[in-house]
Design a protein around this nucleic acid. Structure first.
Lengths: 427, 427
DNA sequence: ACGGGGAGGTCAAAGGTCAC
DNA sequence: AGTGACCTTTGACCTCCCCG
């Protein structure tokens, strides 16, 4: 017999008293308010039972407020309300599925991981082209995207293709500091990079305790200063042997410093990455959108879902959402610099820019590639504010006032759609 | 009230926090993550209680292992008790104080509000110059700023001057839809614009119920499509009478659509604005910073304070923080477009660009203005990635490969400091 | 030395749970 | 819907150890 609410009592009366006080129950006695209340008959008359509780010394002040539930099954992140596939889980799925596409096509190049090469400008272009195709596949995994007008789909794809390239590159490079470089140029990953985990773990175990590890550690010191392209090329921060193109290196350094490093610091997870990518993608300010408000709603839903997802990490969630979103301005900035570099490389004939790259990244008609729509108004795509920065081609800038006195309202609502949807299998 | 785990706390929360951290309890809020947690209701939502513990400054690192007293070095998580003036209140104060400076100097132009003129390019430059000075004043109201190395102060001021101009312009224009335009070109404000509130309210009352209001309403329809410059000039969205410069109008439209409109939709308040400004300002990626990590900490503190401030709103906090931060990429984008326009206007001699504007906005040595430091390496400020986008001057781009094959490591750690601190009274 | 601040721990008595 | 045997959480009140 313990003490409850100030009186010696059984567990039953404790519960009865609490429920009664909490819900302010008012009972009535069917007899003469003097019913016997003992172990057997305690449930015969509530009025008399409660009266006996008080008489025994129970204090209603001792009953506290209702507390939080102890066993609260957490509602899953799966979309209960909106079936537009914008839940963090759906977005993560789209990310994983679209990556799988390339993993399969890359199966043949499995062995190549052993001899990664430093990227030259055309390796970069090559990787870019590949990644752009993945981007389209990715988008198609998002129902809310496929339900948009075709024009808007194209607009979104074009608007931030560059950001997505860099973002993907950054993600690939995130866990590179958890990587070891063997003497024969093999790479051992601590975490998931492709399907090499099991193998890596094995090798790690095999070498455990050996002095070999020392040399390995030395060789791996600077691997966190490396970017991994989609086609298994590498961009190094420290320009070893001067084998890197300086312009590629510049972009690479900024990606490492301004994107990879902060994302590593907060240890972004796949779900967060998927959301961040989608937030960049659904940009209500993208040029030529017919339903910007609709896009804004989609992005809003995503950023709210991400906010909720992060708030569920109670111990290290604070500031996390902000740090993620604050990666976007530098991402945009680096993207522009990259596009600028590609423009230059193209201009000087150093790089081969094919039509997909031209369309999605450089944002408009090319002055050199053969196109179906020669009616494209201007090589500067006049009137399209530089979401993709339009480097004025020097000729035009010098000999024409066009870029300065360009006529924004004269530009078509929908920017030249040289990008034929069929070509990138949008449907 | 003692200190536990780094925060003033009661015994109950101490125990709660320790138990939660030790067992890594994950709670779920049954409501909207904004439950009141006070002496009475502290047990009603464990999720919100734990969150409040963290918000109050409790550090999970301060919770030791079970039955662990052996290796005890207690300090370390002693955070720099943020007396650095980064609280939302301090930032709001800096904002209000710096605005006051100009309000006073503008006292003479009080009457001018009656005949606002459409801005021409040199009105814009004029306003810009004025606002740049205010920006410096603003920064000086933030202790954490003044405690920085002088070089870093200059770096921060230069890095996002353009964003701050547009941000200020957007703020000024926020409540313009709450404004009425009288027939004699007077403006009546519903809310605070300068000190005109009382007067406006008076006029509003005076006209109440009159048929005059109809005409007034008609005239005011498009006032939400107007930007207000610091020098009382106006940029209109709809190019009435074709009196606007088309290039100014382009920037203006984007500011209205991509900044003012979203900020209006969430009804940003002064505190949030002040924080947003500071977040833009303390950019750890700014060129030439000697202590980027320090700046990152400052920004982190600010964005956390803002997150907390917003989460204190009981009903409409969800998604708000994200919407605010998501204004930053377009802000950056528009800024670059603006700078591009100014570069062009300068290039063609249309605009007068003085040295302050050149230094803070265009980011480096001028090719025309007379400067004290002719040693500035390159008109392209080679090697400085375009946080401020460096439009390649056509001559250089055409006749020199420099911008493509520029040597980033050859640039000085600290960009040319043509901006003499004394000149803008940094001290 | 020695008092106090802030870690850790304890456990009576609150609370919630969920077949019945 | 209410009951009550059974389990969890709370927080007032200790101890212990560094540090000034």
């Amino acid at each position: 017999m313990d003490k409850y609410y100030g009186a010696s009592s059984c567990d039953g009366c404790k519960g009865f008293f609490r429920r009664s006080v909490r819900k302010n129950h008012l009972y009535t006695c069917r007899f003469s308010r003097n019913c016997v209340v003992d172990k057997d008959k305690r449930n015969q008359c509530r009025y008399c039972r409660l009266r006996k509780c008080f008489k025994a010394g129970m204090k209603k002040e001792a009953v506290q407020n209702e507390r939080d539930r102890i066993n609260c099954r957490r509602p899953s992140y799966e979309e209960p309300a909106q079936a537009n596939g914008l839940s963090v889980v759906s977005l993560l799925n789209a990310e994983l599925l679209s990556r799988k596409v390339i993993d399969e096509t890359n199966n043949a190049t499995d062995a190549e991981i052993n001899n990664r090469k430093l990227a030259k400008i055309n390796d970069v272009c090559d990787s870019i082209k590949q990644q752009l195709l993945i981007l389209v596949e990715w988008a198609k995994y998002i129902p809310a995207f496929t339900e948009l007008h075709l024009d808007d789909q194209v607009a979104l794809l074009r608007a931030h293709a560059g950001e997505h390239l860099l973002l993907g590159c950054a993600r690939r490079s995130l866990h590179l500091s958890d990587v070891l470089l063997l003497g024969n140029n093999c790479i051992i990953a601590k975490h998931n990079i492709g399907e090499y985990t099991a193998r890596a773990a094995g090798v790690l175990r095999a070498h455990a305790g050996e002095h070999l590890l020392l040399g390995c550690a030395r060789r791996s010191l600077h691997l966190s200063d490396v970017l991994l392209l989609g086609n298994n090329c590498i961009i190094a921060k420290h320009n070893i042997d001067g084998r890197m193109d300086i312009d590629i290196s510049m972009i690479g350094i900024r990606v490492m410093d301004e994107i990879v490093k902060p994302l590593r610091e907060i240890d972004i997870d796949d779900t967060e990455f998927a959301c961040l990518k989608a937030i960049v993608f659904f940009d209500p300010n993208a040029k030529g959108l017919s339903q910007p408000q609709k896009i804004k709603q989609l992005r809003y839903q995503i950023q709210i879902n991400l906010e909720d997802y992060i708030s569920d990490r109670q111990y290290d969630g604070r500031g996390r959402f902000g740090e993620l979103l604050l990666c976007l301005p530098p991402l945009q900035s680096i993207t522009w610099q990259m596009i600028e570099q590609i423009q230059f490389a193209k201009l000087f004939g150093v790089a081969h820019v094919d039509s997909l790259l031209q369309e999605m990244l450089l944002g408009g008609a090319s002055t050199e590639a053969s196109l179906e729509e020669p009616a494209a108004p201007s090589p500067l795509s006049a009137g399209s504010p530089p979401l993709v920065p339009q480097l004025p081609l020097p000729e035009a800038a010098v000999f024409d006032v066009a870029p300065f006195k360009q006529e924004p309202n004269a530009s078509p609502e929908h920017p030249s759609r040289v990008l034929k949807p069929a070509e990138i299998t949008l449907l």
